[in-house]
Design a protein around this nucleic acid. Structure first.
Lengths: 340, 340
DNA sequence: TTTCAACACGCAAACGTTTTCGGTAGGGCG
DNA sequence: CGCCCTACCGAAAACGTTTGCGTGTTGAAA
């Protein structure tokens, strides 16, 4: 087992100074061709690679991006990471991933852990608990220390930083408008509790679409789901008592759950009921029927977030002007809505 | 904006030496209570946290685990990361994730990038291209440099290191045996090309199950899929010409594709055809019908891999004795096989 | 022969820690 | 008064780099 070789070892071996070795390897004109050749050959032979940690310490930059997201077993977040990783890779950055598990405390701990030198900047999406508590001091703190933060999807307006989002309200609006234009009169909404920012925005889009089409929003046509594991009763009650002819669900899990429950009650999708989901993930693609959905391009969001962060990291004088990029969405029509 | 404070700054401010500050913060008995109090108060006030990079350089350990996997937008790999992250977190480690994108070159580059000091050890699953080329020099190299590697799922026997796998052959055997015991006579196999190690093992399990039940394996009952995007014709031909009464698919994507194609041809699952998949992911759970599948516990694999790696990292004298842990699987019975 | 530039290289600082070793001052004791 | 011990603190090395600057040698020009 040959351990990693350092400048010092090469220097000792070749009987020159450390700086001579370093300069030779970086092809400095200060060093004679002779010496350079010798050093470079030796370095190649022993497969010398400069130590990243030492470089990080010296340069005060780690070339590493910290990602903090609620969970990773989740199609959307996985695609975002994928997008981030692409751009990071193209620019010589690594990504270090931390999971908040929807917990405020874990989010704080992870941020503090990474903020002490491990990374150059953050890309993050808020945990539910953080959105509920509205406590963002940990984020403000790292920003004040001069570390750039880019937030995506689950963001807050209480923190000034770069952001990447979709227009949740508009996207929901268009989906619901689409249903209404298809002639549906009783469009229900299956959404999250209000403190989840994106859920709230999508709910607002639903309401606005109804209003603009002169339709009344009815309390009973809206179900808010706190916990996916026991939401069946609420949805079943909706289907039974209200008999909606269309449902807009704010994520694909809700959408597929609606379809499954409907099927169990003998309600056929799309013949008796149309369903539109949100987020074009695996479920929407492979469930039967395949689900019409608002596509939210995670790769693009990730790429965009990474680009914004790296741009900010690599500009010389810092810019107090933060940007919010809005990624466009579009409706993917599949089998859960009428085809004509 | 207040930048991060260092020992040196505290020392200057309090007019003591750097070492006094360091010792005070670590509660050394060498320092008087008075001074300790003063320093600790000051440090707390300015929210001092030791710089990770400097610590890494000094201690020659980064408390970071490198993960290299083929892709992340993939339920199984996401669950494995999740498991790794759990154990890593419990032990004060961070994880840095690199994607090989099924490319040999990217796998090599990523490994070399991380191997130069950024991490303490690897957890990885081989890319398809690497399995095809059978070139593992990059892995052997980092191991020879004294950096521990744990391989999971897509492994090779050509490298000596810790491994975490499932018994692919046995799991496949049991699934096929299950089908045969249900009375099915024409059990087809939808698998990958041979160089994917897990695919090959599952194929062998299928063949062995047939043999042990005195059934002939027929060439025409086996389809090997190279590229998921245009596999329809092969599967349709299988369904049409062979009319199998059961299919064992080596992953859930193949399974759901079979079901969808069957449905299009008027073949009902499970009435006319039974299907068993592999990997209990989102697709299996939410497709209609929900798919009976061999469950491969990604969380457990990830946890196990992380534990093996950290154990090895934290033991004082190094152990040349490598372990291979086999995670148990079990069949999750759902709607794509007969219920009685 | 002296002087000066150019060339080739080494020294040392710096990044932020931790830790070993050494040093100083004061007090107690003989 | 002298010695030693203890309590407290600082200097410096070490981790592996990069780089500005100083220095020595050489050759050529004066």
């Amino acid at each position: 087992m040959k351990r990693k070789v350092t400048l010092k070892q090469i220097a000792r071996e070749l009987d020159v100074s450390i700086s001579t070795v370093s300069k030779s390897l970086r092809n400095s004109p200060e060093i004679s061709e002779d010496t350079k050749q010798k050093v470079q050959a030796f370095a190649k032979l022993y497969n010398y690679k400069p130590n990243n940690i030492a470089l990080s310490l010296k340069n005060k930059k780690t070339k590493t991006i910290g990602i903090i997201i609620p969970e990773i077993v989740h199609h959307f977040f996985a695609t975002v990471i994928s997008g981030i990783e692409q751009v990071a890779n193209e620019n010589g950055y690594n990504v270090i991933v931390c999971l908040s598990d929807e917990s405020f405390d874990k989010e704080v701990i992870n941020m503090e852990m990474l903020a002490t030198g491990s990374i150059d900047g953050f890309i993050m999406s808020l945990s539910k608990e953080t959105q509920l508590k509205k406590d963002f001091h940990h984020i403000v703190e790292v920003i004040n220390q001069g570390m750039p933060v880019v937030m995506f999807d689950r963001i807050t307006n209480d923190v000034f930083c770069d952001k990447v989002i979709i227009d949740d309200q508009m996207a929901a609006y268009e989906a619901v408008d689409y249903l209404i234009n298809k002639g549906f009169k009783k469009v229900a909404l299956v959404t999250t509790v209000d403190y989840v920012s994106v859920g709230k925005l999508r709910t607002e889009g639903y309401l606005k679409a109804l209003r603009d089409n002169n339709m009344m929003a009815e309390e009973d046509m809206i179900v808010k789901i706190e916990d996916i594991d026991n939401c069946s009763v609420k949805i079943e009650r909706l289907l039974e008592e209200q008999k909606p002819d269309a449902i807009f669900a704010v994520n694909e899990l809700f959408a597929v759950t609606c379809i499954k429950l409907a099927a169990k009650m003998g309600v056929n999708v799309p013949d008796d009921l149309s369903v539109i989901g949100f987020t074009d993930g695996i479920i929407s693609q492979f469930s039967s029927p395949a689900i019409t959905t608002v596509s939210q391009n995670g790769i693009k969001m990730g790429r965009s977030a990474a680009k914004m962060l790296i741009d900010r990291l690599e500009m010389e004088e810092e810019d107090e002007h933060y940007r919010t990029e809005v990624i466009e969405t579009h409706l993917v029509e599949r089998e859960s809505t009428p085809t004509l």
